[in-house]
Design a protein around this nucleic acid. Structure first.
Lengths: 232, 232
DNA sequence: TTTTTTAGATGAGTTCTATCATCATAATAA
DNA sequence: TTATTATGATGATAGAACTCATCTAAAAAA
């Protein structure tokens, strides 16, 4: 039993690193760990649903997710893309526990469910960990503000250039990658129509800035993309 | 001396309520209070400047401010409007202390500067207060996400309807108010051109939904505004 | 396999929005 | 006071982005 747990810890250094290490004690980690449940999500499955109460966080160790929002009229918007390892759902535990957006797997994921109540107990008794969470939420706030600014100020060409760079640098970590977003989803991320995405990608392709073959994308000229994203 | 402090406490119940009450001890409050400086800002003055490091927070007890961002090309964007009493600058103390946007007085303000280092000391030793801050930042995150969603999904007419309702309900707390934003600033809040704001306000006026006389605005039909803001 | 459905691609037409030019009025400075 | 500047208002034009229709290719289902 103890041995088994050791193995799980070893094989999942990311969880250990993010949730324990300098922030919580061995004991506190055990508390969290005992209450967490390993779970798998298939592509398309919803990890946390918009409008529902949060009873748990998800710490994903494998896979990729989108933060998506659906409005009254059924239109979708992708706020951001995140990949493992990452703690999901942290923003609304301490404010009110209703998810303001959904988190959906865009490829198969694996992770742990973490009980919010257990987490709260740890937080109350551990200021350092609380500070770490505060940092996490502040970071999310900052990202969302920048996202907001970008959306407000840039036109579609600039947004697409920016998002291509974001995907390349922060998500796929390569200048060659295979999108796991459809053109429709890409458009929901940019905040424009599907056709606009397709046309703009084609334009970049024709100008030699990128190479597009279906979902496979190669960034040829990141500098030029950067320039386009700055100009707007 | 002690008496003088009592008076200041009494006359400024908001500060007391927000910063102390159930969250920090009398001692901790004294620490903060001793280090805080009463300060006044004239309309147009910058309380916290985008790009600069935060050495203090501002707790405003009187007046109104805008959160504004200026991009490379000099274009402005107003993220939100806040009025006293409010703690400003809380989002970036614990992440990294560079202000991502400016906070500028849109009418004369009065408040306290709060030393960030002193605040940090309190936070580390008081989980409840930290939780309160976490709640504050989470709330800001949530607001900014909703703002983002609104910007991405609604067109100008819907945004303006929404902002009129926001100003009426949350800021001026009346259906009659005198804007302390110019049309240009209003446009920077909406995320559109000045002319678009003017035309849309005129349209609402002609349809009898609102009454506009320069900066004086009367909301005649909040229900209709709400409908317009929902439809987009 | 064939059929059906979904995703990607493209162009035309329309709507929305920004920009520009101009003018009137209000606020501020000389 | 007058002159100057900033703000508000309006219409015309150009550009950006969306919607719609259509088509092809790929994926999924029968």
């Amino acid at each position: 039993m103890e041995n088994n747990k050791e193995n799980k810890l070893d094989s999942d250094k990311n969880l250990l690193k993010l949730l324990s290490s300098q922030y919580i004690t061995e004991d506190e980690f055990e508390q969290l760990y005992d209450s967490s449940v390993i779970i798998q999500f298939k592509k398309g499955e919803v990890l946390l649903k918009q409008g529902l109460k949060t009873t748990h966080l998800v710490f994903i160790t494998k896979g990729m997710v989108k933060f998506n929002y659906q409005d009254n009229s059924g239109k979708n918007l992708i706020l951001t893309i995140a990949k493992a390892p990452s703690i999901l759902g942290g923003a609304n535990i301490f404010y009110d526990n209703i998810n303001i957006f959904s988190i959906t797997a865009i490829e198969d994921c694996e992770g742990y469910l973490i009980d919010v109540e257990k987490l709260k107990n740890i937080v109350i008794n551990n200021s350092n960990f609380t500070l770490k969470l505060l940092e996490l939420v502040s970071g999310m706030f900052k990202t969302s503000v920048f996202n907001f600014i970008s959306l407000a100020h840039k036109q579609v060409t600039g947004r697409i250039a920016e998002i291509l760079l974001y995907l390349s640098r922060s998500i796929y970590e390569s200048d060659k990658f295979t999108l796991n977003l459809s053109r429709q989803e890409f458009a929901e991320f940019v905040g424009c129509s599907k056709e606009n995405v397709i046309n703009t990608l084609r334009k970049f392709h024709n100008e030699g800035i990128i190479e597009v073959t279906g979902k496979h994308i190669i960034i040829n000229d990141p500098e030029k993309l950067n320039k386009i994203s700055k100009v707007g």
